[in-house]
Design a binder for these strands. Structure first.
Lengths: 116, 116
DNA sequence: TAAGATAAAAACGGAACCGAAATGAAATTG
DNA sequence: CAATTTCATTTCGGTTCCGTTTTTATCTTA
């Protein structure tokens, strides 16, 4: 069951979602931060800085800084890998799960409102 | 014909779209810039700095700066309003229309790929 | 026409982010 | 066990964005 969406509907949905993200009082995440956050919450662990950098096609410092920012917001958490202490494992938080839930509900609601 | 999308599907779609935006070599727009751009291209003119600021719930300098940035990318253009020369009218460009088209196609393609 | 109102931009200091290069810590290899 | 590799972070200079405040230009109105 693929989702059939005309390009006009897709644009309108993108517009409405972005507008709500700007207008709400949730923290504003960049595309990179959003990609990282959703990768962590949608894909199976473990998630390392190196792995995330490869998946997104960006440098490792970009991941480090994004983790700093999202760590401050309590959306993700770092933990040293005990198997290989060079690695940092990125983990979920309760607050991050709540944010994801907000995002998912908003997206589904906006999609619901798409007009033919 | 509303678009039915589970929250899980919505999240996956959001993830995939953001990931592609990070990975492509198109200019990276912020949520605010995207909202402004799509407002200009989806809603009827005229578009003024003041009107855009109100619609997005942000200050006017935010709009001015976003227009500077998107003007450099040739995505939008300013024109003085001849009726009231205090106003700036924001207008579309060919390059902006091409960017919108790229965005729309990518979104529709990603939506097409959503799995039940 | 002088005074006030309005629209946009500019200026300012502070915060965040960028890519590239250097550093620190831990594991691996010869 | 010394040298090298790997992983993540820090640092650097530069750019961009933020909110607030000030300035400039234009219009309205008393």
């Amino acid at each position: 069951m693929a989702i059939e969406l005309t390009t006009a509907q897709a644009l309108q949905l993108w517009h409405d979602v972005n507008l709500e993200l700007v207008r709400d009082d949730q923290p504003d995440l960049t595309s990179r931060q959003t990609s990282i956050l959703l990768t962590i919450y949608l894909e199976a662990p473990p998630h390392t800085v190196r792995g995330l950098a490869q998946k997104l096609g960006v440098s490792k410092p970009v991941i480090t800084r994004a983790l700093n920012a999202m760590g401050k917001l309590d959306l993700v958490r770092r933990r040293r890998d005990d198997e290989d202490r060079r690695n940092v494992l990125v983990q979920r938080t309760v607050n991050g799960a709540l944010y994801i839930e907000y995002l998912a509900d908003m997206l589904a609601r906006q999609a619901q409102g798409v007009r033919p």
